[in-house]
Design a protein around this nucleic acid. Structure first.
Lengths: 211, 211
DNA sequence: AGTGATAAGAGAAAAAAATCACAAAGTTAT
DNA sequence: ATAACTTTGTGATTTTTTTCTCTTATCACT
């Protein structure tokens, strides 16, 4: 269908934002939107919106714009959100627990199926209906729940080890919240690092000597 | 000193990662590292490491490499981490509470000074020693604690309003965790959006039809 | 001192991404 | 029907970022 050629990483992120605006527009009863409107709402340029969409096809009508609901559906399909995805979280610390309860995931089609940890005092407990299991059960649970996505929310020192276990369990997409680089051997596995502290550091870099 | 010309955004993120490796190396007693070693540990190319550093000066010795501790200190200074930064979190929901307790911030010099919310049932309570205050106290608390950084951890529908209040309180750097674009008027304020669900969507985009 | 090995720094080249500018296609009003 | 207007889609251009290549500096060994 698509995805034959290389798409800028940033495009994917913007599509996500466009889709949220489109959903809102559709719910408000606005059934046609222009690239200009999308651009304004999402903080990019109209040309950028059109270019992003052009990677995947022609969704608009010249002189008119885009149908909100239709374009929303297209984008969701492009992003692979035509279905729900079960997710495993490894690490039942503050971050892991918060992520497991974060409403924003569910809204976008992600269901936290299970949380894993090694701490005996945590195992067996439930968090908003989600079971905390021992990491040794990862493979089994992944199979049962058909989990293909994993979130690493453990300290940096344990991140690589956890990643290896996720791969072993057949997980194909990993978000790493530990502030460390992870090496994955083997193709067709996607890895993304999200460094929360580094986000603040972008700010301090610019703020440092602005005053 | 530096920051006279435009630096790639990605460079800042990589510097953060380099610095973590350098700290580790220094603590292990490795006092000289090469761009090659940094590159291997952080998953980039050696040329990239050197180019990133070259934006800010000459920190290495040809034929030798870089002094771990020295380079670490330089990078921390560049990132504005030569001191600690008090941070305000707005939103005492799951995400806000988790972020307020997240160890990773403190390790990098960020102190959560106060959490703000509007829900009367939350106000007055403490979370790991951090007070939850009414949003109306934002200006006052920001002044007292010298807060220049703010984190938005409220639903998308409230994000813009919160951002306006942060600006009014004199906050100069904002991380927005709500999945919506925020408009800020006025210069010399930095804004970054971090969309957690979108991170998973990068994965599903690629995974969608890989199998 | 001389030689070989190592590694930073920097200019040039290449690649990637964003922006521009305009033709094509549609709508509305006359 | 035609004209004026709107808005998409796209090739060309520009800008930004990464990679390559080569020069220069330092160290270790003889």
């Amino acid at each position: 269908m698509f995805k034959k050629f290389k798409i800028p990483d940033a495009t994917i992120g913007r599509l996500s934002l466009y889709s949220r605006y489109l959903k809102e527009a559709d719910e408000k009863g606005i059934d046609t939107v222009s690239s200009q409107q999308i651009a304004k709402a999402t903080g990019v340029t109209p040309a950028q919106v059109r270019k992003d969409l052009a990677y995947f096809g022609e969704f608009g009508t010249r002189g008119v714009g885009y149908n909100s609901r239709e374009l929303y559906n297209y984008i969701m399909k492009i992003l692979g959100l035509g279905r729900r995805w079960p997710v495993a979280i490894v690490g039942a610390g503050n971050l892991g627990r918060a992520l497991s309860q974060y409403k924003g995931f569910s809204e976008r089609g992600f269901d936290i199926a299970c949380i894993f940890d090694t701490d005996p005092s945590k195992i067996g407990k439930k968090l908003a209906g989600i079971e905390i299991c021992h990491i040794d059960l990862l493979g089994e649970k992944a199979r049962i729940h058909n989990i293909e996505l994993g979130i690493i929310a453990v300290p940096a020192s344990a991140a690589q080890e956890v990643a290896d276990k996720l791969l072993e369990a057949g997980i194909r997409g990993i978000i790493n919240f530990a502030p460390v680089n992870i090496n994955i051997t083997g193709d067709n596995v996607m890895l993304r690092r999200v460094d929360l502290a580094a986000q603040l550091e972008y700010l301090t870099y610019y703020l440092e000597d602005t005053r």
